[in-house]
Amino acid sequence: MPIARRMKGELSEADLLDALRRGDRQAFAAMIDRCGDTVYHVAYRLLGSQEEAEDILQETFLQAFRHLKDFRGEARLCTWLYRIAYNLALMRLRRKEPETISIDQPILLENDEEIPRELFDWCCLPEEELLRAELRSVLDEAIRNLPASLRTVFLLRDVEGLSTEEVAEILGISTDAVKTRLHRARLQLRERLSRYFSEELAGR
């Protein structure tokens, strides 16, 4: 069955894969629609530059389409793409900053940002209050300052909403490691946001 239109959510994974294997161009476009944003997001958060994220985006899809026959259908198609994107971005990051990247190693327990210190209670301030404080750039800055190993787990689990198992598969780590890193990422981000909001908003 040729794909007349590419309907984002409606085409089943199996039908899409069949169409891709037949070389159906609509299916290629559908795959970009389906997985492209997250591919870009992973690359952008790891590399911190739009230009490099665009490179990885292209490399990922080129590589995926070239190696479609290797895809055995055990994971979701998008999961497979995210894994390719992650590995490409990681390779580039290692080239750029060889000294900072120990992404696969266990993280040392010395980061004291995981012991909550900032106890300003901003949880229930109305969103307009928080938005006034240039929320987006604050969020960006905080996530950029996370160690890369925590950053990727957080963005895939909490921002993109992937499951623990999927994230483990993409990063090639255990599900327990995903859970630990997620927890640490959340606490570190909380600490940074709290510090920021307490300076900006406390006592007004």
């Binding site: 492209g36 944003d37 997001h41 994220a53 665009e54 901003w122 949880c123």
Partner: peptide, 29 residues
């Protein structure tokens, strides 16, 4: 406080932390 602000941190990122392909990147792809 830590619990509530952690939960809110996650909510804020869910709502505002997403990044999608810029239109130009999509076109080049």
């Amino acid at each position: 406080v830590v619990f509530n602000t952690t939960r809110r941190t996650i909510e804020l990122y869910r709502r505002y932390g997403r990044v999608s392909m810029p239109e130009g990147a999509r076109e080049s792809l």
